[in-house]
Design a protein around this nucleic acid. Structure first.
Lengths: 230, 230
DNA sequence: CGACTCTTTGAACTACCTCAAATGTGGTGG
DNA sequence: CCACCACATTTGAGGTAGTTCAAAGAGTCG
């Protein structure tokens, strides 16, 4: 790994506060690698060899059963994934594939586990990361079970609006069919949800969303849960 | 807290391997308390004062929004809950209420965080617990998004069958309406799902389920994901 | 331009929900 | 122990959100 890359990695929340010697140990066992788009990184039901940390690009977590597939989460940098499986040394519950070309840091699983035992600061960072992942899934599950598909789209817009600094225009960072899958619906339905929202002042042009009237937008979103979106 | 209770608690996976002095510190700040059924233990959007560990009874995690409510998980002993919020010192994403009278160990949140930093063994146990919780939610989400309501019931039966040691008869450990909510459906629909399953050799008598033909049951469940059910 | 894939639109279908009523069940006090 | 009540479950009928299938329109990239 290059010196410049190491310097950047060292600044990640997962590593920034930890002991230098432990960091070096992690990195000695690590690979930083580009993968092309649509690469299967992880297959369900296998045992973890490496902790994966997404550094560039986008990755989809998905679950399959009997030919059907469902999106669990869509990850953007910087995010460690499959932490739970690595920590417990258990089978992956979901697969992972790149949506775009992606640069991923791979750290040997048993090195993680061993450094984890010795470095409390690192341990805390790992837990924090895992907790974040947990809370993200809870949010998704909550959205799935409460409210209809249009609500889910509206919620996603509201969260994405914050993430993109409330510019009033939002870029959908991937294909609409991916967004649909993430929101647990069909592309057709996402399209129809956007139609519905247009009547409430949200205009869709390709991958750009425009919030025409922020006041009525806020009123629309109010009933939705919007705290703790990280 | 009584000496006998402490002895039992000491044996829990979360505490069994940790340093005695740290254990004592945790317990000095802890309360072991019975709560009546249907007590609200935790309210969404509040900050955690205590880590909760369910020792006896059952607890429901739920989310609400605009009057609607959805079950996130149903906990049985021994399970620590709201770990993610405690670790990150962030708002609860879901509420928790007792389903039955329940005995709960409350440990001060900041004591948890401080012992966590000093005791690597405890840290690992916390992560392990959190990872388990994470994986449980992933399973639920997966079930929600893949397959219909009858599939979800079937899957639940299969998992519960294992948990109850494949005796061939299964006790539903709570009201059917709770099960329905846990599986993200209406009680009416659960009832109809049981009807459907009866045609496949699963007989329902009150809270008792009988698997009449294990061979055909296995065939039925096969297409479902059933690995890693913990 | 032309061959893709993605997105939108329409129409028919289906699973699930809602509402309402009947039936079953457990607990309580007489 | 029984009668009764409250509440859980089941059954039925009708409505609705979302799916599926098919085809047309838009982007995108060689």
């Amino acid at each position: 790994m290059r010196r410049a890359e190491l310097k950047i990695l060292r600044k990640l929340p997962l590593f920034c506060d930890m002991n230098q010697r432990h960091f070096d140990r992690l990195m000695k066992s690590a690979l930083l690698q580009w993968f092309p788009a649509h690469t299967e990184l992880i297959r369900e039901r296998e045992l973890p060899d490496y902790l994966h940390i997404l550094v560039d690009g986008m990755v989809e977590l998905f679950a399959t059963r009997g030919g059907q597939s469902a999106t669990i989460d869509i990850l953007q940098p910087i995010t460690a994934f499959i932490i739970a499986a690595v920590v417990r040394d258990e089978l992956y519950l979901n697969g992972a594939r790149t949506l775009t070309p992606a640069r991923i840091l791979l750290i040997q699983a048993n090195t993680i586990r061993s450094v984890f035992s010795e470095d409390a600061v690192f341990a805390r960072a790992v837990v924090s990361e895992l907790a974040t992942r947990y809370r993200a899934v809870i949010q998704v599950l909550k959205n799935d079970r409460i409210g209809n598909s249009t609500d889910r789209v509206l919620n996603w817009i509201a969260r994405e609006d914050i993430r993109q600094h409330r510019k009033g225009s939002i870029q959908i960072p991937f294909d609409k069919r991916i967004l649909a899958s993430y929101l647990g619906m069909r592309p057709e339905n996402l399209s129809r949800a956007f139609q519905t929202l247009r009547r409430h002042g949200i205009i869709v042009h390709g991958k750009t969303l425009l919030i025409k009237d922020r006041k009525s937008f806020r009123r629309l979103v109010r009933p939705s849960v919007l705290f703790a979106n990280n």
